[in-house]
Design a protein around this nucleic acid. Structure first.
Ligand code: MN
Ligand code: MN
Ligand code: MN
Ligand code: MN
Lengths: 153, 153
DNA sequence: CGGCGAATGTAGCCATGGCTACATCTTTTG
DNA sequence: CAAAAGATGTAGCCATGGCTACATTCGCCG
């Protein structure tokens, strides 16, 4: 216990720290971030397969507004994590795990948008915000959203 | 119109694409992410100054659950963006812009937590989820949250 | 007043996620 | 059936955000 500053002698006394901010809270938000991209990719690949019968690198890149090598690297990661398959010059496909994740993500996305709209958020704004928020909505929170939506008349 | 695959001839016809997913939507979520860290830093620095009279690199690192060089680099970025000042071996301070951002972020954080709790989310879960979600809540959505909170009995 | 030890700074590594430029492959098409 | 052109792959660059290891500086204390 040495250190530099000798308590700048400000107003706040040595109260037991009002909130205590556990580091884990931030750690969680940080790692969730790493998962966000994966979720968007998987959901989008699922969408493309449903809409067009397959998901091509170029289509994915276009939808995401990203250059194609970026997609190639991301798909490599999806494969590494067992969420997708692909062979050179062929499209990208989801594994069972990938498809399951896509479905979960899609559902959560829709529920969140519905909630926002129910709370009075314009639907275009709801879509926009949901795209980012969705990746941080835990199962518990999602359940609460569903309950609220179901309960309201 | 050349390209590789000749329509794998699946079920879906050439419907006008149900949702059309504009790339901007993802781009927005992506850049919001880049802003998330900055917001958390600024908010935390503000908290530390309020609680302890100053924000030291070590304290920030401890609160965020991160190594101190990580904080040093982040603070350099905050300075670059005009949100903070600091001089070697002294603490970190917020500029006016930084303080304003901190205040805004803090308010939004509290509103979001209140909303989640109001919807039945347990407060610890609300705190956890809010830490990530907050950075994707637009002003419009925030206003809707406030209206909902104000309107309920 | 001289050290010791904690706090800070600095260097340099890694992974992720973007990009551009260029090489290859596949399909279409002339 | 041989290009031409579009789609993919690959190489290699940059910024961000983490880390460890090591060098400095500062503030207390003996
Ligand atoms: Mn998303
Ligand atoms: Mn989504
Ligand atoms: Mn946060
Ligand atoms: Mn916060």
């Amino acid at each position: 216990m040495t250190g530099l500053p000798p308590e700048p002698a400000s107003s706040p006394g040595p109260e037991p720290t009002p909130e205590a901010e556990s580091p884990d809270r931030f750690a969680q938000a940080r790692s969730a971030q790493s998962v966000a991209l994966i979720e968007d990719y998987v959901e989008l690949i699922g969408d493309l397969i449903a809409e067009q019968g397959e998901a091509r690198i170029t289509d994915i890149a276009q939808r995401l507004g990203v250059a194609h090598p970026t997609v190639t690297k991301a798909v490599a990661r999806l494969k590494r994590e067992g969420l997708a398959n692909s062979r050179p010059y062929r499209g990208v496909f989801l594994t069972e795990a990938g498809a399951a994740l896509a479905e979960k993500v899609r559902t959560r996305h829709r529920t969140l948008v519905s909630l926002l709209v129910a709370l009075g958020v314009p639907s275009d704004t709801a879509e926009l915000d949901a795209e980012g928020m969705e990746h941080h909505v835990s199962d518990v929170t999602l359940a609460a959203f569903e309950a609220y939506l179901a309960a309201r008349d």
